[in-house]
Simulated scan of single mutants.
Amino acid sequence: MSEWWTYTLSDFLMFSPRTYWRLVELYNRDFWPLQLPLLAAGLAALWLAAVRRVQAFRWLAIALSAAWLWVAWAFLWERYATINWAAQYVALAFAAQAALLLAAGVVCRPASRPPGAAMRGFGGLLAVAGLLYPLLGLAAGRPWVQAEVFGLVPEPTALFTLGLLLLGGQPASRAGRALLFAIPLLCLLLGAATAWTFLN
């Protein structure tokens, strides 16, 4: 039996990249043209966060909660879990993030002051990157129908969420901020690890 340190990430991948991208393609076809209003909603949320900042926090948190819940159910639970058993646990984490965002929007008191200029700039950059995420697929040579769009799949949703939280304000408490940031960051790390295995 091989020693454990000889394994690489790709040894734990239970499906081929082709299988994954075909799943994304079928998912996109099933819900077309939902991608277009989602991108429009993302632009509106980005504008609201940039202009209204603190006042917009509650509404943005509630809207993001809906997006996380949708990804948890429609993509992770219903589709991705059919080729990756671990996706059901990721779906539960996404549902937990949806609940945290909803609680932040309904219960938590937003920070009294907006973040500093540097934080807002970085947040805006992350949010724009989340909206432009589908262009990564095009750059990699994949067709539009396999594009990963905010509100439909995990990574752009997590990226956009982190950006809006940094740009548009956060809960006043440090604990609240830590809870809201933890799952999106873990999601991006998991997505990066999966993408790395696709390239090796």
Rank of each mutant, 00 (worst) to 15 (best):
N28A: 09
P154K: 04
V107F: 05
R177V: 08
A86Y: 15
A87Q: 02
S173N: 00
L46T: 01
A41M: 11
L39T: 02
A182D: 11
L188W: 06
L186Q: 12
W68Y: 01
A192P: 05
D30S: 10
N84S: 14
G123A: 02
L43Q: 04
R58H: 11
G141I: 05
A93D: 08
A61Q: 04
F181N: 07
W68K: 01
F150P: 15
W68C: 03
Y89P: 09
A178N: 11
L43S: 07
I183S: 08
I183V: 10
A96I: 04
Y80E: 12
V128N: 13
V51R: 10
A111Y: 04
F122Q: 06
A140N: 14
R120H: 00
V107C: 05
L135A: 12
C108H: 15
L180A: 07
A87F: 01
A91H: 09
W144Q: 08
W5S: 06
V51S: 13
V128D: 02
M119I: 11
R174N: 09
R120K: 05
G169S: 08
E148T: 02
A74K: 00
L152Y: 13
S10F: 12
L190A: 10
L38M: 10
L23C: 02
F94M: 08
P134H: 07
L136G: 11
R142S: 07
Y89F: 13
A44W: 01
Y7H: 15
L9R: 12
R79F: 06
L166T: 03
Y20N: 07
G191I: 06
E3D: 03
A127M: 07
R142G: 15
L34H: 06
G124A: 02
P184S: 05
L34M: 12
R177L: 04
G121Q: 03
L189A: 09
C187D: 13
R177Y: 03
A72L: 11
Q88E: 12
Q88T: 15
V24E: 02
T197H: 12
A192V: 03
L48S: 03
G124N: 00
W4M: 13
G123R: 00
P110G: 03
R58S: 03
P171A: 01
L167H: 01
E78R: 15
A129R: 08
T161R: 02
E25P: 01
Q88P: 09
L152T: 08
A95S: 06
S173Y: 00
G191K: 14
S112V: 14
G163H: 03
A104T: 00
P154D: 15
G191E: 04
R29E: 12
W5H: 13
V106E: 02
Q35I: 09
R113N: 10
Q97R: 11
P154Q: 06
W4L: 11
R109W: 04
W70S: 09
R22S: 14
T19S: 15
V145P: 05
L185M: 12
L166W: 06
G137D: 12
T161S: 04
W196C: 09
W144Y: 13
G123C: 03
A44F: 10
A118D: 00
A139D: 10
V54N: 07
R52D: 14
V54A: 06
R79E: 12
A74M: 08
